[in-house]
């Protein structure tokens, strides 16, 4: 089997061209490995080989981001690599940004597997961890040996198309994609160990860092509710009997839109819930308990509200991902606005 062709991207410093005074060094390509490429090449053994090294000064790259990316990319692609390695950049900020930009561009624009390495606090890590795999390294070049040892097998795995495991197994900086894997110890034991560390004030790593939540500010109040067109939207899973669109009982992959023109009451014979996350008995007996069509019809007749919108929208909130919920809400919201709906009663369970 032919060796995997690797192009290595490094900065002027690691190419031993110079430090800050040479940071405006323009992109150049050299055959074979340069500087830290030697260690990579040795670690690749007979599986892969660095065919070329592309070098660029950190200042030049960051100050001419667009043109520099283009130049570097065209040099890289001219060697027809199967794999691109950038850095590692350790804690060097501008180098990290350059490595992130190059690796991400190689992956996205050339469709070639790419990997880089950085210290977790490198600004490049935050900027690119969701775009390309960044192996976590120490904060200085003293960590080169460990970085090579981690990056090489991971890079080979990427090229082979093998399934990439979780960040904890593979050593990349968590990229927001949660991946399942089997730990050595069961969860309860990990919890007790973590608590003992926390009690002693020793460092520990949480398995799930708390996310930042979206907060949606409420809209302004309706001025005259007796003129308002009101729509019903629910995550309580109320559907016409028989669940015609097969909305899932959990982790819904869709939402439904149903005509309630002329319907004044939801009955056991006509509506039910598809939701698998709560006791369905009472909702199935009278679906108005979740989707109050009956009361709104009364209000409509009495002139307490303007009108009830002709359609209701429904999905199952149970186990449904935030990303899916957001997408449904955007689509539903668009239609409601187009239909001139003034207000929405959103019921959950």
């Amino acid at each position: 089997m032919a060796k995997i062709r690797v192009v290595h991207y490094i900065n002027q410093f690691f190419a031993q061209i110079g430090g800050e005074e040479k940071a405006d060094h323009k992109p150049e390509a050299r055959e074979g490995f340069v500087g830290p490429g030697m260690a990579f090449n040795a670690a690749f053994g007979d599986k892969a080989e660095i065919v070329a090294t592309v070098i660029c000064g950190d200042s030049y790259f960051n100050e001419n981001l667009e043109t520099a990316t283009k130049e570097v990319l065209s040099m890289i692609s001219s060697y027809k690599p199967d794999l691109v390695i950038a850095g590692p950049a350790f804690n060097a900020g501008r180098y990290g940004m350059a490595c992130g930009t190059v690796a991400a561009a190689v992956k996205e624009q050339l469709g070639i597997p790419a990997v880089t390495g950085m210290y977790i606090e490198n600004p490049g890590a935050d900027g690119f961890k969701t775009k390309v795999h960044i192996i976590a390294t120490k904060n200085s070049a003293a960590g080169m040996k460990d970085a090579v040892a981690a990056m090489v097998p991971f890079a080979l795995k990427l090229v082979s198309g093998e399934k990439i495991g979780s960040s904890a197994e593979e050593g990349y900086i968590p990229n927001g994609i949660r991946v399942n894997f089997f730990e050595e110890k069961r969860g309860s034991e990990r919890a007790v160990d973590m608590l003992l560390k926390k009690l002693k004030g020793e460092p520990y790593v949480t398995e799930f860092p708390m996310p930042d939540f979206d907060r949606v500010p409420p809209n302004k109040a309706i001025k005259d509710i007796t003129k308002a067109k009101i729509a019903l939207v629910t995550s309580g899973g109320i559907v016409p009997k028989g669940n015609p669109d097969h909305i899932e009982s959990s982790s819904a992959s869709k939402y439904g839109k149903y005509d309630i023109n002329g319907i004044t009451d939801l009955t056991e014979a006509t509506y039910e819930t598809a939701h698998g996350g709560y006791d369905p008995v009472y909702a199935n007996l009278d679906a108005d308990r979740v989707l109050p069509v009956d009361v709104l019809r009364e209000y409509e007749t009495q002139g307490k509200i303007g009108s009830l919108h002709r359609y209701f929208y429904t999905t199952v909130g149970n186990g449904t991902s935030v990303a899916n919920s957001k997408a449904y809400a955007l689509a539903i919201g668009k239609e409601l606005v187009a239909d001139g709906v003034d207000a929405v009663i959103l019921t959950s369970t």
Partner: peptide, 25 residues
């Protein structure tokens, strides 16, 4: 966690900064 089939979604329906030691199944 319920992070979506692609693993890219928010995992929990609630969060707080004080929950700084989490074990996940």
């Amino acid at each position: 966690e319920y992070a979506g089939r692609d693993g890219a979604s928010q995992s929990l329906a609630d969060a707080d900064a004080s929950a700084d030691a989490v074990v996940t199944g």
